[in-house]
Amino acid sequence: MNDLSPDDVQAVWLTLKLAGVTTLLLLLVATPLAWWLAFSTRWYRGIVAACVALPLVLPPSVLGFYLLLLMGPHGWVGELTQALHLGRLPFTFAGLVAGSVIFSLPFAVQPIQNAIEAVGMRPLEVAATLRANAWDRFVSVALPLARPGFLTAIILAFAHTVGEFGVVLMLGGNIQGETRVLSIAIYNHVEAVEYGAAHVLAGGMVLFSFLVLLALYLVGGKVRVGR
């Protein structure tokens, strides 16, 4: 085993932290969104669905570029965060989280939406006739039935955030311990012809990704994963 420098260890932890926080936030955002997309009959449902799926097809460089401008001092997000005395998001961990949430959104929404659609309204209506309130229906009926969808969403969102590169490169500024995540560290090692260090991290990444996918197929064998 090649030696892992403290900087690289830090990059690994930072990446796990980023993926963890992002996944948690995504669950909070994606669940109501997926719910709404599954059952809404509004005319603008298609527009919302298209916006949610946009990060699937856009190059990360496009996302990164616009996020950099939006979050910058002259962008409206930047003006908002400054007005709230939160400072600016680019070059910060919070900025990476914001970018990752947007970047990985479809990976969380779509599996949940599929699962909720598969469950359908019927079991919820039955629960309602048994006087379960809305919260109860959601927690005791919808959640357990849609569980494979949630698990898929968690695994995919986490893994996708770990593997994120373009957005982080354009937003992060490569600051050690703050924004230098694993993919950036690997990129730097390769660029600087430090192949030994790159191998350790890149090899680990391959192994990690394989295990994630394996888990995915073992856990949610029936849930389809597609881009």
């Binding site: 001092p73 680019p90 490569n174 600051i175 990129y187």
Partner: peptide
């Protein structure tokens, strides 16, 4: 306070956009 661009083109972009 330092942020690092991967080339000076990206560094320019960081400054021109006002983020640095």
């Amino acid at each position: 306070k330092l942020v690092t661009g991967e080339s000076i083109a990206q560094t320019y972009q960081f400054i021109a956009s006002g983020n640095a």
